[in-house]
């Protein structure tokens, strides 16, 4: 089956590896505010999804279209998809796309996928690193009426089918799924490869295709915040009291022994 058409959904998020102290909630606007130190990145699970697509392309050839939705998407960040080997980059970018929920976002992505037209595999991260909802892949599958396998750590495509490994709590399942299908990818698949210098140079010359709601046949009222079916009523950070009792000693080893005595005394162990 040469020439697999793949679409990889990838979202720009604030770097989730940044220290927790840099994430602050603006309780008036109900928004997360991150300082300038927190760089935007491609959501980590979406990177694994991209890697899964690249491995299939390495073996069988084909085309990878990276698809992203947002407002003010940073070109240098999202073009990483092109630099590592995606063929096209399509951005659903407009103010109207801002503030969506999984419902409006999945519907906009599907409208774009239908416009792209050809797809054998749609790959998504298992969840985004910002809202962590884990619904988009399944939502896309439901709207398109195609099968989905979640939490995938390995994909092999053969003759109109994919054989995948799905992670379960005490092992994994080997699953066969007919194509076209949606696959959501988990971290065990492995990290995204580094871009080559050649890839970076080629990506620099390419421009992403930008679609507005009207380009995918949607009204502004159907996308982003206007198209939501669930309301965010409050965003907050639970207050934590720092209460750690630090056990000391002349040496690290002595501190370790003191910790044992303290825990025993407190009847924890």
């Amino acid at each position: 089956m040469p020439g697999i058409n793949m679409i990889v959904c990838s979202k720009q998020v604030p770097d989730p590896e940044a220290p927790p102290s840099l994430f602050k909630v603006d309780t008036v606007a109900n928004k997360m505010v991150t300082g300038p130190e927190v760089k935007p990145v491609i959501s980590q699970y979406d990177e694994f999804a991209l890697e899964a697509a690249l491995r299939i392309k390495d073996k069988l050839g084909g085309k990878i279209t990276a698809l992203s939705l947002g407002n003010k998407i940073v070109r240098d960040v999202i073009k990483k998809a092109l630099a590592v080997g995606a063929d096209d980059l399509i951005l659903l970018e407009d103010e109207a796309f801002d503030g969506g929920d999984s419902w409006s976002t999945a519907h906009a992505l599907v409208a774009a996928i239908k416009k792209i037209g050809q797809y054998d595999l749609i790959l998504c991260g298992r969840q985004s690193s910002d809202w962590d909802a884990g619904q988009i892949g399944l939502g896309i599958a439901e709207i398109l009426g195609i099968p989905a396998v979640t939490l995938v750590r390995k994909v092999e495509v053969t003759d109109r089918k994919a054989k995948v490994e799905r992670v379960i709590p005490d092992g994994y399942e080997k699953i066969e799924v007919t194509l076209p299908a949606v696959i959501t990818v988990t971290s065990e698949l492995g990290a995204l490869r580094y871009a080559t210098l050649k890839g970076i140079m080629a990506a620099a010359k390419k421009q992403p295709i930008v679609w507005k709601p009207a380009d995918i046949g949607l009204e502004s009222s159907q996308v982003g915040a206007a198209g939501r079916r669930i309301k965010l009523t409050k965003l907050f950070q639970p207050v934590k009291e720092a209460k750690c009792e630090v056990i000391e000693g002349e040496t690290a080893a002595e501190a370790g022994a003191n910790l044992a005595m303290r825990l025993r005394q407190a009847k924890l162990l």
Binding site: M32, S129, W131, D132, R229, I230, L232
Partner: peptide, 13 residues
Amino acid sequence: PVYGGNAQAIFVS
């Protein structure tokens, strides 16, 4: 929890 546990959100539908 949202943002990897950096905050919590209350939703209503």
